[in-house]
């Protein structure tokens, strides 16, 4: 497999996963805003923060409200974080590697791109919940199609690494920003802590699985433990790392990447979720994200740009 192709597949999977996660996040947020009284709402700044787009948004000098933030992170293409931009980039990466993936998968990605573009040009804000669900569903369909129809050879491993690194990244971001808001939040939010934690879980489609796993009232430390360490939950950090490791092992010369894996795995293992609060949690997540970035750097050095 060509290095260039490996890299594009990796990014295609990352962008698709990012689009899906962004859609989940925004969908949960829309729901949350229905549940909480206005003064207890965490504000739409949280969404731009999770997506790392505060700066991009603030350049536009518009109020941080639903009317402005929602289009910015969904259908507009003026900033690279939006669902539309992200899907566009997934499509572009696949378009230049479409000879590698089953043509049906390319057709689905292309159709998703056309769908989002059509929605954007129709200019209506109605049915946005349905639109977000549609994006989630279609991304899932593509992931399933690739898993079920593509050779699980080198190319597939790069897709899987991209998908899981991105998923780990998003889970850590949601934990980071979400917990900062919930734990250090406004006094008015205290009565709603339960709902807020539920939202964190829901934005990762983790609520139901959490209940099955924990069988207790939603509490901060347990949510953290679940999303960080529950290997059986596919969006937890522990699970995504297992997936990445399994793929790395199947690729040629993975040693430096596996070493980076070992670092993050031991950090996760040693973390005591009862102790992780406030500043310590933020610091832990910062370090975790740096670990994840190092895995990416290693992939880049071993496979994508070995001579650079």
């Amino acid at each position: 497999m060509l290095s260039r192709v490996a890299e594009r597949l990796y990014w295609c999977a990352r962008y698709l996963e990012r689009a899906e996660n962004t859609a989940r996040l925004v969908r949960t947020y829309l729901q949350l805003s229905l549940d909480l009284p206005a003064k207890a709402q965490p504000g739409w700044g949280l969404v731009t923060e999770v997506l790392g787009a505060e700066e991009g948004f603030s350049k536009r000098r518009r109020a941080l409200n639903e009317k402005n933030v929602l289009p910015f992170v969904t259908l507009s293409t003026e900033h690279p974080v939006s669902i539309a931009s992200t899907i566009g980039m997934a499509r572009e990466n696949l378009r230049t590697t479409r000879e590698i993936v089953p043509s049906e998968a390319w057709e689905r990605v292309n159709a998703l791109h056309l769908y989002v573009r059509r929605r954007a040009s129709s200019g209506t804000s109605g049915g946005r919940y349905r639109m977000l669900s549609e994006v989630v569903q279609r991304c899932q369909q593509i992931t399933g199609l690739l898993s079920g129809t593509m050779n699980h050879g080198d190319g597939y491993q790069f897709l899987r690494i991209g998908r899981n690194l991105e998923r780990a990244d998003m889970t850590s971001r949601i934990l980071d920003v979400g917990s900062a808001h919930v734990l250090g939040g406004k006094v008015e939010q205290a009565p709603y802590e339960y709902i807020l934690w539920m939202s964190v879980l829901k934005s990762l489609s983790a609520y139901q699985m959490y209940r099955q796993h924990v069988r207790r009232r939603v509490r901060a430390t347990q949510v953290l433990a679940f999303l960080l360490k529950a290997v059986e939950f596919p969006r937890s950090i522990a699970h995504t790392l297992e997936e990445v490791r399994a793929s790395l092992m199947r690729l040629p010369n993975p040693a430096p990447a596996l070493k980076a894996m070992a670092d993050v795995e031991s950090r996760l293992e040693q973390a005591d979720t009862d102790e992780l609060r406030g500043e310590r949690l933020r610091q832990f997540i910062d370090e975790l994200q740096q670990d994840l970035a190092r895995i990416h750097t290693q992939c880049d050095r071993i496979w994508f740009h070995p001579n650079a």
Binding site: M1, L2, S3, R4, V5, A6, T97, R98, E99, I100, S103, D154, L251, P252, I302, W303, P306, N307
Partner: peptide
């Protein structure tokens, strides 16, 4: 795609000291 061949761009290829053509792969 139809031939099951690699689609390469110029920079993916390199000519070695043995005057043979190679492609950069993983």
């Amino acid at each position: 795609q139809q031939m099951g061949a690699e689609l390469v761009e110029g920079p993916d290829l390199v000519v070695g000291d043995d005057d043979c053509v190679y492609m950069r792969t993983i």
